[in-house]
Amino acid sequence: MKDQQVIEQTVVELAAGGERPSAAEAGGVAALQLAEMTVSYGEKPAIFSVDARIPARSMAAIIGPNGAGKSTLLKAALGIVPRLSGKVTVFGEPFQQARHRIAYVPQRASVDWDFPTRVIDVVLMGLYRELGLLRLVRRRHREMALACLDRVGMADFAERQIGQLSGGQQQRVFLARALAQGADLYLLDEPFAGVDAATEKAIIAVLKSLKEAQKTVLCVHHDLATVIDYFDHVLLVNVRKIAEGPAATTFTADNLQATYGGRLASAHIDQLKLPA
């Protein structure tokens, strides 16, 4: 296990090409660490006492049945829904101080796509920290936004009204906005939900390129069939944390059964692609 880590780290350092991550990060500081986080709507916990440790530079997934609190977990980590208890640390710093290193991709359905604005304007929202209240949008900002759109294959749609987009295109625009933030940790809420196959391919390509660029990606994910192909770290939750760790050792039939209970027939598990 130790050796494995050393090897991984060497590979990482080689890939980074001189631009080495800080010593603290290289030493295994988690990109996102949750400690004893509990969230409750009313009298029933949606998330109970979850500890999690998403390693830096991983492609991680939060997995669990519907209503298991996956999205709630993400939103509570971001402070969008209030926590009853718990602490959030990002790259070893308290959440508030590390906020600028996080990019968030909400669920597509969480906004009204009839809002009067264009694709490029939505991507420019990702530059809010840089632009602030009054700084003008300059050419380099536009070019950067266009480059982000290009990465998700939407450069030709920059001037489109957002209401004219398909579901998959909407998801790509949200991803482009997150790219514009230039963050180190990307939190995505169901990025593949209800998108077409082409979009799914395009999104996963972008996410993989992020990982290659030493970024950390954490997705709320619902499609068990693709977990092993897409992710290297998984967090199985159903109100409680059931299991967490490298996908290869954690995404097992036993853990899935424990997470999904009777909802996942064993026949279904048999068909899943599980780690060898």
């Binding site: 109970f48 006492s49 159903n238 009777g262 909802r263």
Partner: peptide, 9 residues
């Protein structure tokens, strides 16, 4: 499911 759903700590 009835039992799993109540596993809320």
């Amino acid at each position: 499911e009835a039992i799993h759903g109540r596993y809320d700590g």
